[in-house]
Write a protein that binds this DNA or RNA. Structure first.
Length: 773
RNA sequence: GCCUGGGUGGCGGAAUGGUUUACGCGCAAGACUCAAAAUCUUGUGAGAGCAAUCUCAUGUGGGUCCGAAUCCCACCCCAGGCACCA
């Protein structure tokens, strides 16, 4: 078990309850642990870890600093998501429908300079290597959509009277001759430079209005809006003058932030052209014959028309030829953006980075080393930022009195002058620590590696990294064979962790390419009202209460019995009694079997000295089928049907067990206990230990007899024209002729067949006879 | 709008081409009890019938097949994801 203890969830809780996050976290861990132990969850507690433990987060810092040195982390001014309630920047992945996933506040965009991780460098591999994963198709698809690859071309428009070039990305270069305008995102860096003096006021006003909108407002905007810049681009093929507009429907964070407007063949461009009365020029049609006028965009691919030398070419061929003609080059774009990695909050891993003004000057002067120590790629790309040396890790999170977020864009750590002030690891000069902290995802990106390596390894110093990366252990344990987790991680933790793992693979410390080989999403248990459990709804089922009322075994077993593991299903307060009854009957049955107690209810005679053979055979068969079915079901994670099978077995035993000898009954019940043990370990081991000195968990899973499991007598369904008219009991090995003859002879069937001609007879061994008349 | 799941009794669900509704809950009747709870027994898809039995039923409509909850086509509804992605 690992405690993902840093980050917003823990800190927001601490603030709400006016306790220090470290204390709140410690208290909650203790409570969770008590609950888990009460439920009998058998984790290997010797490998327990917490992401907020310095022994753990020193390695998180070590990994980050490796990324930094290799140029994967950068500080750049960008419009970043800001949550006004959590008072911190957030990553795209932290949003849910444009709102903060933690507190559901409406977020804003703020121009800020924060640490970003170049996860986009890994976009291609994150996408491609999804194929290596045995994951639910839905999650794989969510990841593919999140990464969002699209292939197209990039090319530049010349701008009339200016030397700058305007780069656009398109997936439909075949529609180039249909371009009647160009659109820039309002935040596009060229907007100010190219805007004509007479349009300046209008453009400024528009940009201000649009950039003040929240993302949600911008999404809600249905009508197209925009404004003409007064500038013109030159069409690369026809050399026509093309008006340049800006509009909020073009996003700065995708592609190049500029698009070619082809109203005839793009729905959005069509809408925009209609709104602002721009020309619509048809250049693709289904059969190569122009329609003349379009009442909506024709977006399908087709044959080119009105496209100069490219007329009559099919789309794909045309795109390649046009690219050659105008000098466009193939390009791939991703929806995935770089990972906003800084939080202006207290409760997180401090960055292992310092800012050194002297080193900044040296790097800016073009020096590549300082006192004989070379600057890393990351240090050269981020002038002044220096990675903390391995020997100085961890950078411990200082204890503060005032941990509440400030809202100023600086974390509470910035107020800790003594902590902030430090020496540059490169030049020894005065330097300042980075005061932002890492997001809660950082620690959870590699906790499974922590489990694999064990606690002793975590306690090593980062300067002993070579010892830390125990290749043998990593090869033995990883990739994780089987990961059970909620689907809410699909485009968050599971993207980040895959990236993190691939980075560790690249630097040679991790032997596998992917962290989690097989994934299953367990369904959410809803409240009895079929809604997500929440305090405010008052529909929370507290496991402590359930355990108090029914015991831990009933709780565990009922959770498994409710339905398939993957299904989301409501807690049924009444349904749990069924499991409780099952366990009580098992207890009573076992007591009877071991003769510790007189059977309750009906008077029952002594057990016979030897079992009644038919009964013994019947019960034994049921037992062996259960051994097979329960075993198979557990491996296939079908716990609900495994439990049904145990109930069926118990029903068979309880009907006629009094015809079994004490010895037989006892031995069968002991086997059943082993089957029950994974589901109800407390009761099973209690009963086991009442008759055995061994431990039930040390027992081997029973073997079933294939002879007993095989059906000896079967019931045939007898149909006439596919409709069930009779059933027929027969030996499993009875021949077709025999079964068909007997089926035909049955009184019911005879009457259905009377006066009709049987055209043919279908026989499926062990299952069915069907007379077609 | 696009993508991914899913739709079976009063309820949770079982069955992935062969007796639809296993198992459990609930409900009804009975036993035990002064009574209740607990426990045990029996019954329980819908409709018709005294009954044997028959007809209908797996979101809707069509198709394939001796036979469809299951395979194919079209549509409807529910849940989740993405969404002005050029």
């Amino acid at each position: 078990m690992g405690w993902d203890a840093f980050g917003l969830p823990a800190e927001n809780y601490a603030i709400a309850h006016k306790v220090h996050p470290a204390d709140a976290t410690a208290k909650n861990i203790k409570r969770f642990k008590t609950q888990m132990m009460a439920a009998g969850l058998s984790y290997d507690w010797s490998r327990e870890l917490s992401t907020a433990d310095p022994a753990y987060y020193q390695w998180t810092q070590w990994m980050f600093v490796q990324m930094f040195h290799r140029g994967l982390a950068y500080k750049a001014e960008k419009p970043i998501t800001w949550c006004p309630s959590c008072k911190t920047t957030l990553a795209n992945e932290d949003l849910e429908n444009g709102k903060c996933e933690r507190c559901h506040s409406q977020v804003e965009r703020r121009l800020m300079k924060e640490w970003m991780i170049k996860i986009t460098d890994y976009a291609e591999r994150l996408l491609d290597e999804v194929r290596l994963l045995e994951w639910p198709e839905s999650v794989k698809e969510m990841q593919r959509n999140w990464i969002g690859r699209s292939e197209g071309y990039e090319f530049d428009f010349r701008i009339e009277h200016r030397h700058e070039l305007l780069r656009v990305f398109t997936t439909r270069l075949d529609t180039l001759y249909g371009v009647t305008f160009v659109v820039l995102a309002p935040e596009h860096p060229l907007v100010e430079a190219i805007t004509a003096p007479e349009q300046r006021e209008k453009v400024k006003h528009y940009v201000r209005v649009v950039t003040n909108k929240t993302d949600l407002d911008r999404e809600a905007q249905k009508e197209k809006t925009g404004v003409f810049t007064g500038a013109y681009a030159i069409h690369p093929a026809t050399k026509e003058r093309i008006p340049i507009w800006i509009a909020e429907y073009v996003m700065m964070n995708y592609g190049t932030g500029a698009v070619m407007g082809v109203p005839a063949h793009d729905e959005r461009d069509f809408e925009f052209a209609k709104r602002f009365d721009l020309p619509v020029k048809e250049v693709v049609s289904e059969q190569g014959i122009p329609r003349g006028s379009l009442d909506r965009a024709y977006v399908a691919k087709g044959i080119l028309v009105h496209s100069g030398p490219f007329d009559r070419l099919p789309a794909h061929e045309a795109a390649a030829k046009i690219a050659q003609f105008i000098g466009a080059h193939p390009a791939v774009k991703y929806r995935l953006e770089d990972w906003e990695f800084a939080r202006q909050r207290y409760w997180g891993e401090p960055f292992p980075l310092v800012f050194c003004p002297e080193c900044e000057k040296r790097v800016r002067r073009g020096e590549t080393k300082c006192r004989g120590k070379a600057y890393s790629k990351g240090e050269l790309q981020n002038p002044g930022w220096i990675g903390v040396a391995e020997a100085q890790l961890p950078v411990k999170l200082p204890n503060v009195k005032s941990y509440a977020p400030t809202g100023t864009g600086e974390s509470p750590l910035a107020a800790m002058k003594a902590w902030v002030k430090t020496r540059c690891p490169k030049c020894g000069g005065a330097a300042q620590r980075e005061t932002d902290t890492m997001p809660q995802w950082a620690g959870s990106c590699w906790y499974y590696i922590g489990f694999a390596l064990g606690r002793q390894k975590l306690k090593l110093k980062p300067s002993q990294a070579k010892l830390f990366w125990d290749r043998k252990a990593l090869k033995y344990w990883l990739p994780v064979n089987f990961y059970v987790g909620g689907v809410e991680h699909a485009t968050r933790h599971l993207i980040y962790a895959r990236f993190w793992h691939k980075f560790l693979y690249d630097i040679g410390v991790m032997p596998s390419k992917e962290p989690f080989a097989k994934l299953v999403n367990q369904g959410l248990i809803l409240g009895p009202d079929n809604e997500k459990m929440s305090k405010s709804r008052g529909n929370v089922i507290n496991p402590d209460e359930v355990i108090k009322q029914y015991g831990a075994d009933t709780l565990r077993m009922y959770e498994m019995f409710m339905g398939p593991l993957e299904a989301t299903k409501p807690w049924d307060t009444q349904g749990i009694i069924g499991i409780h009854r099952f366990l009580n009957r098992l207890y009573a049955l076992f007591e009877e079997a071991t003769r510790k107690r007189k059977p309750s209810g009906k008077k029952m005679g002594e057990r016979p000295t030897s079992s009644e053979p038919g009964t013994k055979q019947r019960i034994n068969q049921a037992l062996h089928r259960a051994i097979k079915k329960v075993g198979d079901d557990i491996l296939a994670l079908r716990f609900n049907t495994a439990i049904s099978t145990l109930m069926e077995l118990q029903n068979v035993i309880s009907i006629s067990h009094h015809k079994l000898s004490a010895r037989d009954m006892r031995s069968m019940m002991k086997t059943m206990l082993i089957l029950v043990f994974p589901f109800a370990p407390h009761l099973a081991s209690e009963l086991w230990s009442s008759v055995e000195k061994t431990l039930i968990e040390k027992q081997r899973w029973p073997k079933y007899s294939t002879v007993l499991v095989a059906e000896q007598r079967v019931t045939y369904a007898v149909q006439v024209n596919g409709k069930l008219r009779d059933t027929l009991a027969a030996r499993a090995d009875a021949s077709e002729d025999e079964v068909v003859a007997r089926a035909r002879a049955g009184a019911k069937i005879a009457s259905w067949l009377a006066g009709k001609k049987v055209r043919h007879t279908i026989f499926v061994k062990g299952k069915i006879v069907n007379f077609v008349v």
